[in-house]
Amino acid sequence: MQNNKRLQVLIEIALFAALAMILDFIPTPKGFKITVKMLPIIILALRRGLWPGIMGGLLWSILQIVLGEADIISPVQVFLDYLFSFSLIGMAGLFQPAMQRALAPKNHKMGKPIGLAVSATLVGSFLRYCIHFISGFVYYGQYAPEGQSPYLYSFLFNGTDFLFETATCIVVMIILAGFYNTLIRVKEN
């Protein structure tokens, strides 16, 4: 039974990473720069915890590289911008134990789970974009002119992306609140 559960977690990681890849094909409101591609990884992290979340993010980044969706300009940049930063989304899994407790059958108040889901999204997204920011000024910064701040450039560039993506994910997370029991709570069998 133990092995079965482990296998199931591994496969869930694979399928959620695949989901993150295909959310590209779902129509998002036109004219808005929004995406919820991070959401599967955050939900995975809230379902299964820290390590599965991190593995899920890592797998997503590997899929992007393997399928040629990644912008590659240097090995270390690939490590920072893809492998490392996407893995950090899995840190949302820090909220998993509290989340599972809050979703226990006897609890009916939705306030706490929503709060936890929103904080998990914030933490995962924030850590991811911190790394994007660092890679931004290290790697893209060398193309910036001398005397102009690569920090500011990277901050503006990644900052707007961060705001849009996080805000969208949080809004969707809140709308999903009624479905936490199906999507996030892991039933003991």
Binding site: Q8, V36, P40, F179, L183
Partner: peptide, 20 residues
């Protein structure tokens, strides 16, 4: 529109969990 998107996300997630 975001609500419309959610109507796709929920069945998609549920079926992925079931499939796993």
């Amino acid at each position: 529109r975001i609500k419309g998107m959610v109507t796709i996300l929920i069945p998609l997630f549920v079926s992925a969990i079931k499939r796993a």
